[in-house]
């Protein structure tokens, strides 16, 4: 409760939480409010917003309901962003823990691999991966995770390096625990907090990467994505700019909401740390 209190102290954190709550509500309500296929034709093509109240945000080039697409797009963005970030954090934590705890050659090899992944531009890697394996939601998630796990790996390794010298790790060794068990049961959970502090930045980056991939036509063709909507609207940018602007605003607000909420969380825990 106290923690929540501290979180809601700054206006930025409140704004972030509100945006995220709205986004989650949109994603959950998508199939309730707009049952059926959001990619089905719902009315005349290129209907401007606020003209017909059954289609409040108008229709796109093919006569699809923009509001329905927006709601279903929220679902894709959120699902891909969260899944990719979770995968990246998982891979990163495991690699970082192994490297930091094992040390020696294993550490060296794992860190050089991390370097290699950081050397290749993440977006290019994701682009290549999706274009080779084929665009589907799962592949997009893996592609984004591949380009995002290095940050968590480095942070986890640094944390593990300091934790493995602590007394309770020595204690676990003395009672004969298997090194792997020590690494994942004793060390890893304690190395998590600073890694999790990265999660908002990673979720935001994942949402942006997904949008950019769909914008370039590499999203899952069977799902509505905001990036895909913007790419669609781009062809009629002069006559119907709202088709690009509406999903664009949704994207910016979403990413901003993730950043602000993340800052709020970090700040509330930083206050707690400085108080104790």
């Amino acid at each position: 409760m106290n923690r929540l209190h501290r979180f809601f102290r700054t206006p930025e954190a409140i704004a972030g939480a509100l945006i995220l709550a709205l986004l989650v509500a949109m994603a959950l309500a998508a199939s309730l409010l707009f049952p059926g296929d959001p990619q089905a034709i719902a009315g005349p093509a290129l209907l401007p917003p606020f003209q017909d109240w059954s289609l409040p945000l108008g229709t796109d080039r093919l006569g699809r309901d923009v509001l329905a697409e927006l709601f279903h797009g929220a679902r894709t963005s959120l699902a891909v962003g969260l899944a990719a970030a979770a995968a990246a954090l998982l891979i990163g934590t495991v690699v970082g823990t192994l490297a930091g705890f094992a040390g020696g050659l294993i550490d060296e090899v794992l860190m050089r691999i991390t370097d290699a992944f950081q050397t290749v531009p993440g977006f290019l890697l994701a682009l290549a991966f999706v274009s080779i394996v084929g665009p589907s939601l799962g592949v997009v998630v893996v592609a984004i995770a591949l380009s995002a796990w290095t940050g968590p790996a480095r942070v986890a390794r640094a944390e593990v390096l300091s934790i493995r010298e602590r007394d309770y790790v020595a204690g676990a060794r003395v009672i004969g625990m298997h090194p792997i068990a020590i690494a994942f049961r004793e060390v890893l959970p304690n190395a998590l907090p600073p890694v999790l502090a990265l999660s908002s930045v990673i979720v935001a980056a994942a949402i942006l990467t997904e949008a950019a991939l769909s914008f370039l036509g590499l999203g899952d063709p069977n799902r509505v994505t905001w990036g895909g909507m913007i790419a669609e609207g781009r062809t009629v940018l002069r006559t119907a700019p709202y088709l690009s602007i509406v999903p664009g605003i949704a994207l910016v607000l979403t990413v901003l909401g993730v950043y602000l909420a993340g800052e709020g969380v970090v700040e509330s825990s930083a206050v707690r740390r400085s108080l104790s």
Binding site: A204, L208, A211, A212, F215, G227, I230, R234, L237, S244, G248, L251, V252, L253, V255, L256, Y259
Partner: peptide, 9 residues
Amino acid sequence: AVPGFCLGL
């Protein structure tokens, strides 16, 4: 928070 392609457009 603005995606590059949005700003570009």
